[in-house]
Design a protein around this nucleic acid. Structure first.
Length: 433
RNA sequence: GCCCAGGUAGUAUAGACCGGUUAGUAUCUCCGGCUGUCACCCGGAGGGUCGCGGGUUCAAGUCCCGCCCUGGGCGCCA
């Protein structure tokens, strides 16, 4: 029997709604095999869900039945058959098999149980990530991730932003702060980009409003649930906007993401047994100084200090929602953030509870001021010559932010480990698979 | 990098305080039986250098030391 015109491949989810006697092809991986003498029930999963197919010895014959008897779980199969009403408690319709073919025979035992009956540690699951993704709960995270990425792009397109791609291999490591991964670029030293910051700023002088979704690299031995060495960042930068205007863009992006996930992923949210966080515009805005006052009721913290993990956790208990902390001390913000006054910067962080999701602000657009700020932060303007000279060509005032996509996924899927939201995460201890 | 907890069949775990017979259970894999299963069921079998190295002891999965790995907390993260 061939995949001729009368047989059509249906996804598992579609089979439930097909009329009796529909000729169909079921393709997928075997989740469970329940032999019952001369009858055999096989549950077949594909990316849409679970289908039940029935192998009857009187129909497929001795040889056909032997295919089922030699089947292993997780094998990829193709079954030709007709839809019939099922007496199963779990599915309405099932497929009575006329021919069963094994497309790829699996080799048990498996390092994890992708049906989730026996739980495995995240470490074991990540070692076998390709198989782990067959688990509907795991797959749900990445279906939601897809919606998030799509939603982000649609919002920015609608707002008139141009999508760009900046280099990830860079020649200068002088930005200070996070450690960069070094690599050999023919006979030169090069580095993996930790952010598109300087490039996206430069692009505002021509493209005006840009955004980029890309992976960046930080060589920090951070062993936490919210740091990885390779992460996906959503970056935006816009000419003529100030810090409050780009905060509104962030609100719009986040609210649209939640709306789209609610619309397109209700099934996945069910599988994950999570409710979407609520988000109402405008998000709460508290200044850094107000945050310090709030924290000072619980513990002594000096104005000017950066907020530590325990401070953020305390704020997270007060604000179980999206909120901004704006106008941080100039001294703890990078050189490219614009000064507000003697002590403050035109900066902000977007938070959800204790988790920092995005960081941004209005940028310095004057070359002299930028050079001054570099020196204040003990960086050498000579190392930034390629960047600084662009400010001679007419640099519009501009603002922007960068948002951790993986962290946003944590908030949406209710996962407390960032590794759950990344297909193949990279942390200080994990480089494979 | 620091602190805490842990490492026992492929996976998940019991046993450790209080050292002593063949390391138990679930799942898994294989074999046999069953024409309506539902994480099928029933019967049988397989699978463990108890993380690695050293020490104490007549005797170590169990006690002690070092290392590695894992989980969590913190630090680092312009």
């Amino acid at each position: 029997m061939s995949a001729g015109s009368q047989f059509k491949r249906y996804y598992s989810k579609e089979i439930l709604g097909l009329p009796e006697e529909t000729k169909c092809i079921v393709r997928g991986w075997v989740e469970d095999i329940r032999p019952l003498g001369k009858l055999m029930f096989i549950t077949v999963r594909d990316r849409t869900g679970l289908a039940q197919i029935v192998l009857n010895r009187n129909i497929v014959g001795e040889e056909g039945f032997a295919v089922g008897e030699n089947l292993t779980r997780q094998s990829v199969i193709e079954a030709f058959g007709k839809v019939q009403k099922s007496r199963s408690q779990n599915v309405l319709m099932e497929v009575l098999v006329e021919k069963l073919t094994v497309l790829s025979r699996s080799s048990p035992p498996f390092p994890i149980d992708p049906t989730g009956r026996v739980f495995s540690s995240l470490d074991k699951r990540l070692d076998a990530r390709a198989l782990d993704l067959r688990n509907p709960q795991v797959m749900a995270i990445f279906k939601i991730r897809h919606t998030v990425l799509k939603s982000i792009r649609e919002t920015f397109y609608r707002l008139g932003f141009i999508e760009v791609n900046t280099p990830k291999i860079i020649g200068q490591a002088a930005e200070g702060g996070a450690n960069l991964f070094k690599l050999t670029y023919f006979d030169k030293k090069a580095y993996l980009a930790q952010s598109p910051q300087l490039y996206k700023e430069q692009l505002t002088m021509s493209l005006e409003k840009v955004f980029e979704i890309a992976q960046y690299f930080r060589a920090e031995k951070s062993n936490t649930l919210r740091h990885v060495c390779e992460f996906t960042s959503l970056d935006m930068e816009a000419a003529y906007m100030d810090e409050f205007e780009v905060m509104e863009v962030a609100e719009e992006v986040v609210c649209n993401v939640l709306k789209d996930v609610e619309k397109e992923n209700s099934e996945e949210l069910n599988i994950l047994r999570v409710k979407l966080p609520r988000a109402e515009r405008p998000f709460k805005r508290i200044s850094y100084t107000e945050a310090i006052e709030k924290l000072n009721k619980k513990r002594r913290i000096e104005w000017g200090e950066d907020l530590q993990t325990k401070d953020l956790r305390m704020l997270g208990r007060v604000f179980k929602e999206f909120y901004f902390i704006y106008h941080w001390p100039l001294a703890i913000k990078p050189f490219y953030i614009e000064r507000l006054d003697e002590r403050l910067s035109r900066s902000f962080d977007l938070m959800y509870g204790y988790l920092e999701l995005a960081s941004g602000g209005k940028r310095v657009s004057d070359r002299q001021e930028l050079e001054k700020r570099l020196i204040e932060q003990k960086l050498d303007p000579k190392d930034f010559e390629y960047h600084l000279r662009t400010f001679n060509y007419g640099m519009p005032p501009h603002s922007g932010w960068g948002l951790g996509v993986d962290r946003l996924l944590m908030v949406i899927t209710g996962k407390d480990n960032i590794r759950e939201t990344i297909l193949y995460p990279r942390d200080p201890r994990r480089l494979v698979p």
